[in-house]
C-alpha cells in the first residue's frame, strides 16, 4: 500500500507553515520525500487567494490586529485560528486521481466522514466547494497544484472563534454564514480526537498507510 508521512507540528504561525510547505513541496517534487500530510493549527490569520475578489472589509479595518496573507492557492478569503483543524496534503496527485477536481471531492469526503464520526450530518453543494451543515459552511478548501503536486488543502472549524469570519466575505461568497463543530454539538470537542479522525479518514479515502514523523 502506498505510504504517506504524517507531520503534526502543532500550533504554527501561518507564514512559517507556508515556508514548511514550500520546502516539503520542493523535496516531494525532487523525490527525496514521500507523499506527506501536514495536520496543524494556525495562530489567528486571514488569508486571501490571488484571484481578484470582492473588497474584503478587514483590509480597511484599522483596528484589525490579525495578519493578512495573500497566498498562492485557489479559493477566496478565509480565517484560520486555534481550534480549527488545518490539513495540507503534499501529494503526487497522479497516483490518486487524474482529475484535479476529483481531488477536491476526495478532500470533501474526508471531512464529511470525519463529521459523521462525531454525529454531525454534512453535505457538499454542487458549485460551492467545501463542506456544509444545513445552510452554514463548516469547512473550506483551497489548493495549488503544480507539476502534479499539491499544496495547501482544507480547514475544518472545530472549536475556533467564528467572530473573525465576520470581517471578511468568506470564500468570496456574499452572505455565507460559518459554523463549527462545537457550535453544532453545543460543546467543545477534543482536537486530538478530531485530528485522529481526519487522519484515519484521509488514509481511507486516499488508500494510504500513514506513518507519523516525530516532531
Amino acid at each position: 500500500m502506498k505510504k504517506c508521512l504524517l507531520l503534526n507540528p502543532g500550533l504554527v504561525e501561518y507564514g512559517r507553515a507556508w515556508d514548511l510547505q514550500k520546502r516539503l513541496f520542493h523535496e516531494r517534487s525532487i523525490g527525496t520525500l514521500s507523499d506527506t500530510l501536514i495536520m496543524l493549527q494556525h495562530l489567528p490569520a486571514y488569508t486571501l487567494g490571488r484571484r481578484s475578489q470582492p473588497v474584503q472589509p478587514v483590509l480597511d479595518d484599522c483596528s484589525n490586529e490579525i495578519p493578512v496573507y495573500r497566498v498562492d492557492r485557489g479559493g477566496g478569503a478565509t480565517y484560520h485560528g486555534p481550534g480549527q483543524a488545518v490539513a495540507y496534503p503534499v501529494l503526487g496527485l497522479r497516483s490518486y486521481t487524474s482529475d484535479y477536481y476529483n481531488y477536491l471531492r476526495m478532500l470533501e469526503d474526508v471531512i464529511i466522514h470525519t463529521l459523521s464520526d462525531f454525529n454531525i450530518v454534512s453535505v457538499r453543494v454542487n458549485g460551492f466547494t467545501g463542506v456544509w451543515v444545513g445552510k452554514r459552511k463548516i469547512a473550506s478548501i483551497g489548493v495549488r497544484i503544480i507539476r502534479g503536486i499539491t499544496m495547501h488543502g482544507f480547514s475544518l472549524n472545530v472549536n475556533n472563534d467564528l467572530e473573525p469570519f465576520k470581517k471578511i466575505i468568506p470564500c468570496n461568497i456574499q452572505g455565507v454564514e460559518m459554523t463549527s463543530m462545537s457550535e453544532i454539538s453545543g460543546a467543545a470537542l477534543s482536537m486530538p480526537e478530531v485530528e485522529e479522525s481526519l487522519v484515519h479518514n484521509f488514509a481511507e479515502v486516499f488508500d494510504v498507510e500513514m506513518s507519523a514523523l516525530m516532531m
Partner: peptide, 14 residues
C-alpha cells in the same frame, strides 16, 4: 514546460 499560472474556483495551478 509550465507557461502560465491560472486560478479556477478552488484550484491554482499551471
Amino acid at each position: 514546460q509550465s507557461i502560465v499560472e491560472i486560478s479556477t474556483d478552488k484550484i491554482d495551478t499551471e
